[in-house]
Nucleic acid binder design. Sequence first.
DNA 1: CGTGACATTGAAATGCGTCAAGATGAGTGG
DNA 2: CCACTCATCTTGACGCATTTCAATGTCACG
Lengths: 254, 254
Amino acid sequence: MADPVPLDLATLRRSCGHCSLRELCLPAGIGVNDLARLDEVVRRRRPLRRDERLFHHGDALSSIYVARNGAFKTVSLSEGGDERVVGFHLPGELMGLDALAGEGHRCEAVALDPAEVCEVPVDELAAVAAQLPGLQRQLMRVIGQSISLDRDHAEMLSRRHANERIALFLHGLGERLAHIGGSALQFRLAMSREDIASYLGLAIETVSRGFTRLQDDGVIAVAGRQVEVLDPVELARLAHGGEPQQPQPQQRRA
Amino acid sequence: MADPVPLDLATLRRSCGHCSLRELCLPAGIGVNDLARLDEVVRRRRPLRRDERLFHHGDALSSIYVARNGAFKTVSLSEGGDERVVGFHLPGELMGLDALAGEGHRCEAVALDPAEVCEVPVDELAAVAAQLPGLQRQLMRVIGQSISLDRDHAEMLSRRHANERIALFLHGLGERLAHIGGSALQFRLAMSREDIASYLGLAIETVSRGFTRLQDDGVIAVAGRQVEVLDPVELARLAHGGEPQQPQPQQRRA
DNA sequence: CGTGACATTGAAATGCGTCAAGATGAGTGG
DNA sequence: CCACTCATCTTGACGCATTTCAATGTCACG
């Protein structure tokens, strides 16, 4: 495909039909003809820089957004002016759904890395979805997945012990990365310890100690934001409420 | 109820157009003609007894449900077999949306009181919504509201202090009751302390102490499940992270 | 080589969970 | 009407996990 016109090529490559996320995102299960209809509605926004905001608290709902590259966090602003992380969003995951209630956005979406998003105007999406049953169904599915992620978050937060929350966080993040074609066992955290602490409802020091503890127990190897899962089985066990394995202090001989 | 033609009258009274929730629920903003289309889809289930379940964990998605009378809780079952309350549902609020992701229901809905629900088969709802833009829009709104409630729950759980969570819980519950025409200042809790504790990620004793503390501080009067908010301003302050007012130990005679 | 943001580690204070006992209230049967 | 029981709720005392405060360490970048 040596296309002489670079713009066309770029547009083509960025269409839903050629997107690596097409099986996970809105296009999933839609025929090629209908795909063109969807493509007309989706706007590819220019890349965002780190810390750039996709929408702000109080903004009226105009579009929903799908992370395409990079990672995002959504934060809600409490009265004190401090931010509280309510979600992390990997490629293929939706942002902005809280505004569907009609009161405007209740949170802000912030790029954690250089990132790209697809912007989907809700009115146009609704109009197209009404005509394409496949799209309507898939829209409901991705909304349901977003709700599921919120539930996972709530489940994390209702765990009493800090170490369980942390294990669950790492475990869940690994699974989400695997789902989009990454490795569940080796990845880089896009978010700071502070973001993680806020997301988990813990003090930042507690998160740090939790990571250290997991490393000492031989479950993970962590260096800054780089994480490697050494014992996925044990991590899953901890994430689901199991007690730490005392008998196995790997490579820790007194 | 010595009604000569019970079925017809009952059916009429129970139609969406005559429901007291019509301005909050799916019918909101829909014309009378279109309303009939919606009515054909909605099934009114027989009343549920206390502790009766609306759907079970793992059930495939067939319908979503709207609380009509009474109150519900949704619980997720952890590995240990113990339940964790993930939400409370008042009249007009949706249940079952977590199954939209396509993996079946992740939780169970349980009636806290004698209750009634409307059952809406999702396939039929989708078909009708595709034809009625007003319904489609309103469907998105109520889904958005459901997501907002999940966010409120997560916000509660991420509060560090037990008293903040409790204050936020009572404050939010009052607002929701006011929204459906009840009193925000005087109400009866449909759920047990145990349910509240599970919902807030606290021990039951901590919830009890929190209630007592709020009563001692003159913010509420609580007797079993009956709650009266004496100082709504202070309750709101506490809910939003304010420190307890020391200088005002109301009616505290040694 | 500084400087500042971010992360880790230590020591101390405390708020919450746990265990245990007591109180309350609803339902039942004498 | 009272005595009994069971479920639910409240209260107290204690230990411990987590927060808080403070110091140190690490890395990127000017």
